[in-house]
Design a binder for these strands. Structure first.
Lengths: 213, 213
DNA sequence: GGATATTTGTATGATACGTTACAAAAATAG
DNA sequence: CTATTTTTGTAACGTATCATACAAATATCC
C-alpha cells in the first residue's frame, strides 16, 4: 500500500504540468465570485488561470465540477474563520463581533471594491435547480447555525446569558445577522456600515451595549 | 394635454397586439425566478410568455430592461406585503409573524417546490457587476429596514417594548431574520422549518414566547 | 376599397458557449 | 538515441446566445 496517487510528484513520466491546481482553483473562485456560475465562461476562467481548456478539463473535470470544488473550498475557509473566531477565549459579545469581522474580511478581500459573500453571489442562484449546489449550501448554513448555537450553549454554562435565554433562538438571530451582512455586502454596503449592523445586532442579542472599537 | 400615451386602447392603428404586457412580465418573472438572470435565455422567456422575440423587444426593450421591470414589480409586491402585515392592528410579535408569513407565502408560491426569494435568486448574483440591479437591491433592503424600524418605534410608543429597547437595533434583527428566511428558502428549507426560525427570532426579539399557531 | 400603421412570425446574423480532437512539446525509461 | 508517456496549445465542433431584418398579417383612416 505504499505510494499514494494524488501526491505531489513521486515520479512523473510525461510533459510536466504548467499549472498549480490549487492556485488555479483560487483564481477560478475569483472569477466565479465576480460574474456568478452561469455568467462565467470557461474562456474567462482559462484567461484568469492561464490554463488551456484541455488542462482545465484534465484538472477539474468540467465547469460544474470545477465550481463545486471552488464552493467547497470557500465553505472550508469561511466556516473555519467563523469557528476560530467563536473559539477565542473572549466574552460572548466580543466573540460574536470577531465572527462577523472575520466574515467582513472575506467579503471585502477583493482587490477592487466589495464583492460580498461567494455563496450568495454564485451558489444561491443555482441552488433551486442544481441539487449538488443546493446540498452544499444547506450543509453550510447548518454548520453556521451549529457553530453559533454551540457558542451560546457555552455562554449559558459560563453564566454569560440571562437564565431564561434560549441558545437556539439566539443562534437563529446570530446566523440571521451573518446572512444579513452577507446580503447587504452584495448590495454594495460599505464595511463600516455593516460593522454597525453587526454591532447593533450583537448588542440586541446580548442585551448589552457593544463598544464601537 | 388630453390623451395620454400608454393608456389602454384610446385608438389603435395597426395590427393589434397578441400579448398582455402585464401577464407577460409575470411569466418572465417566473422564468427568471427559476434560472436566474444570466441563466435565462430569451428563447425560454419567449416560450414562457408565448411572445416572439420581436414582440418582446418592442414591449420591454431588451433582456436587461425586461429583467429590471420584473425586479421592480417583485419589490413592489414583496414590500407591499411586508408593509401591510406590519400595519395590521396587532401586538408586536403577531405583526412580525404576519410579515414573515407573508414573505413565506411568496417564497412558496411556485407551482412545483419552493423557489425562495426572487431577489436572492436573481438580483444578488448580478448586483456586484450591474449598477442598476445593485441600486434596486440596495433600495429594497433599505425599505425593509425602514418598515421594521417604523413598527418598532410605534411599539415603543405603545409601550410594547421594554423601556431600554432600541428600535433601530431591533429593526436590524428583524430585517436579518427576513434575509435569513429568504436565504434558507433558496437552500431548500421547508416552510414549517422556516416558520420555526421566524418564531424563534420573534420570541428572542420581543422577549416573550410566541405560540406556534 | 386603398393607403397607412403597427404587430406578428420566421428566418437569420454574429457572436459566445462548453467541450473535445489532435498534433507538437517536453518529460522519463531503457 | 529511441520509445513511451503525459501535457500543452490551437483549432474546431455543434449548439445556444441576444438581437434584428423582412415579409405577411391585421388593424384604422379617409
Amino acid at each position: 500500500m505504499a505510494g499514494k496517487k494524488h501526491e505531489t510528484a513521486p515520479v512523473r513520466r510525461g510533459r510536466p504540468r504548467a499549472y498549480d491546481a490549487e492556485a488555479a482553483l483560487k483564481q477560478a473562485t475569483e472569477t466565479f465570485w465576480k460574474t456568478g456560475y452561469s455568467g462565467t465562461s470557461l474562456d474567462s476562467i482559462a484567461a484568469a488561470t492561464g490554463m488551456n481548456p484541455p488542462s482545465l478539463y484534465a484538472a477539474f473535470g468540467n465547469k460544474h465540477a470545477l465550481y463545486l470544488d471552488a464552493l467547497a473550498r470557500y465553505w472550508e475557509i469561511s466556516l473555519t474563520a467563523t469557528r476560530e473566531a467563536l473559539a477565542q477565549d473572549r466574552p460572548l459579545a466580543e466573540a460574536l463581533m470577531l465572527a462577523f469581522d472575520a466574515a467582513l474580511s472575506i467579503y471585502f478581500s477583493g482587490k477592487g471594491s466589495a464583492r460580498g459573500c461567494f455563496v450568495l453571489g454564485t451558489a444561491v442562484v443555482e441552488s433551486v435547480e442544481d441539487v449538488a449546489i443546493r446540498t452544499s449550501v444547506a450543509r453550510g448554513l447548518r454548520a453556521i447555525d451549529a457553530d453559533f448555537e454551540a457558542r451560546f450553549r457555552t455562554a449559558r454554562e459560563r453564566g454569560e446569558l440571562k437564565p431564561g435565554a434560549d441558545p437556539e433562538a439566539l443562534a437563529v438571530l446570530a446566523s440571521a445577522t451573518m446572512h444579513s451582512i452577507a446580503i447587504r455586502a452584495r448590495a454594495g454596503a460599505r464595511r463600516a456600515e455593516l460593522r454597525e449592523v453587526a454591532r447593533k445586532a450583537v448588542s440586541a442579542i446580548c442585551g448589552c451595549p457593544v463598544e464601537a472599537n
